[in-house]
């Protein structure tokens, strides 16, 4: 068995685990669906688009990001403490496989989750968009999960399980609130919110539906966050090599 198929086997096991985890399923899948079903049917508009469109982007992002971030950070921290990462280092897998498998599982499970939300928007919300716009929106959210998966890796390697909970709560609330994932941000807060990747991901969604274009500003802000968090994650993993 070569290292690629080994990493994939580990990724598959991670997917099996997540599918059995009720907490994960509730926050990433059930909660966004229920909120969308309950709250999307208003006639209001937001950011120039109808609320049911805007809220769809919010809910799809919320589920994807909480799956990528909260879940991974807690697990990595716990598994590091329990010694599972040490145990894996005694196998033939290359040292980075653990993190790679986590990302594979995250990305593999958020894809159907985002697809379900898009289908919900199309058929429950009756949102009519060209196929390419649906694709751009789904891909943007999907890539956005990488930002949060990377941050989760950094935090999971840095912090111990007993201190990680409140920290990820604060970080997740920060990004989801200011990014407008729970409800739209208005007024002076918006200036501030514009710096967050979450806000910009939703913005790409509204831009595409309104103008059929994507401007370079949200794209570059998202990429900057991605580079910063991947850098942090790499640093944290290397730094922990002796302490695993």
């Amino acid at each position: 068995m070569n290292s690629t198929s080994g990493t994939l086997a580990l990724g598959k096991a991670e997917i099996i685990r997540l599918r059995r985890n009720k907490r994960y399923l509730f926050f990433t899948l059930a909660l966004p669906i229920v909120l969308y079903l309950a709250l999307s049917k208003t006639a209001a508009t937001e950011g120039g688009v109808s609320f049911k469109v805007y809220y769809l982007f919010e809910m799809a992002s919320l589920g994807a990001f909480s799956g990528a971030f909260n879940n991974n950070a807690i697990r990595i921290s716990q598994e590091r403490k329990d010694g599972w990462i040490r145990q894996l280092r005694l196998t033939c897998l290359p040292a980075n496989s653990y993190v790679v498998a986590k990302i594979i599982a995250t990305v593999a499970l958020t894809a159907p989750q985002i697809a379900i939300m898009m289908l919900l928007g199309r058929f429950y919300g009756d949102i009519q968009l060209p196929i390419w716009e649906w694709t751009v929106i789904a891909l943007t959210i999907w890539l956005g999960t990488l930002i949060f998966a990377a941050l989760a890796v950094a935090i999971g390697y840095w912090m111990n399980p007993n201190s990680v909970q409140p920290v990820i709560m604060i970080i997740f609330l920060f990004f989801s609130l200011f990014g407008g994932l729970w409800f739209p941000v208005t007024g002076g807060l918006r200036t501030f919110a514009q710096g967050t990747p979450t806000y910009r991901i939703v913005q790409i969604g509204t831009d595409v539906t309104l103008h059929g274009t994507v401007s370079w500003i949200p794209v570059s802000i998202i990429l900057i966050w991605l580079v910063v968090f991947v850098g942090l994650a790499t640093f944290a993993v290397r730094n922990a090599a002796e302490a695993i």
């Binding site: 068995m1 086997a9 580990l10 099996i16 010694g83 040490r86 005694l90 196998t91 033939c92 897998l93």
Partner: peptide
Amino acid sequence: GAMLQSGGLMPEVTVRELVSLVASLHP
């Protein structure tokens, strides 16, 4: 083949699944 005092196990899977996984990682 090594067994550590501090080696943890992957939770949420069955014993058979875990042993199968580790066996599948072995040449």
